[in-house]
Computed example of a mutant assay.
Amino acid sequence: MVAIKTFHTAAWFSIEACVCYVLYTGLVGRTNRHVGTAAAVVAGESLVFAANGFRCPLTELAERYVAERGSVTDVYLPDWFAHNIPAIHAPLLPLMAYLHLRNLRRASARGQSLRR
């Protein structure tokens, strides 16, 4: 279980860093290729989560080896936060998309292309 929780926490932290980066750059008006890479990570994670019935595959793995369904937190985060991550992040996804689409429209209106 320690290995699963450690791996899941590291994966969550890296994805969360991408979420924060995409959100921050959207707010400050920077859209570039690095944002595209971070957004691809966030989108990929979201697709895996949705394809698995809106449950993390690592949670199912932890439940298979350690506990009964719904009785395990498989990440080193406070339980209340771990269980509410989808509700916290769901509104951020369309917000991030809106901010970067806005940035791209503004750059296009000024005749600029994406910055590296």
Rank of each mutant, 00 (worst) to 15 (best):
W80H: 07
R110D: 09
S113W: 13
R64C: 03
T25S: 08
Y98F: 13
N32Q: 11
A90S: 10
F7D: 06
R55H: 07
A38S: 10
G29A: 08
A39C: 04
Y98N: 00
E63G: 02
L23I: 11
Q112F: 07
R33Q: 09
A109H: 04
I4N: 05
R105M: 04
S14T: 13
H83V: 14
A97F: 05
T25K: 02
P94S: 01
S71H: 11
Q112S: 10
A51S: 10
S46R: 06
V22G: 01
H34P: 02
L61R: 04
R30N: 07
V2G: 13
V48H: 03
R33I: 10
A10R: 13
V42T: 00
R105V: 15
V2E: 15
A50I: 14
E45H: 06
V22F: 01
V75K: 01
K5I: 09
F49K: 02
R105S: 00
N32V: 10
V48C: 03
Y76R: 03
L23R: 07
I88D: 07
H89T: 09
N84E: 08
R106Q: 09
A87L: 07
A50F: 15
V72Y: 08
A51D: 04
L27S: 04
I88A: 13
S14N: 12
V42S: 01
R115L: 12
A50E: 12
T59Q: 01
K5R: 15
M1P: 14
V22D: 07
V41G: 00
A107R: 12
F81I: 15
L47R: 06
V2R: 15
A38Q: 01
L104F: 05
R64I: 01
A109Q: 10
Y24Q: 04
G44T: 05
G70R: 05
V19A: 06
G111S: 08
A11W: 12
L61F: 08
F49Y: 14
N52D: 05
R69V: 09
N103E: 05
L99W: 03
A109P: 10
T31A: 05
G53P: 03
I88Y: 11
N32A: 11
R55G: 00
C20H: 10
A10V: 15
A90R: 10
F54N: 14
L77C: 04
V28F: 06
A62L: 03
C18T: 08
V66A: 11
L114G: 06
A109D: 07
A67E: 07
G26I: 01
A38L: 01
A10S: 08
R116E: 12
F54G: 02
I88R: 02
Q112W: 12
M96W: 00
N103I: 08
A43F: 13
A90H: 00
M96S: 06
S113F: 11
H34T: 05
S113Y: 11
T37R: 09
V28R: 15
C56A: 06
L92Q: 02
V41D: 03
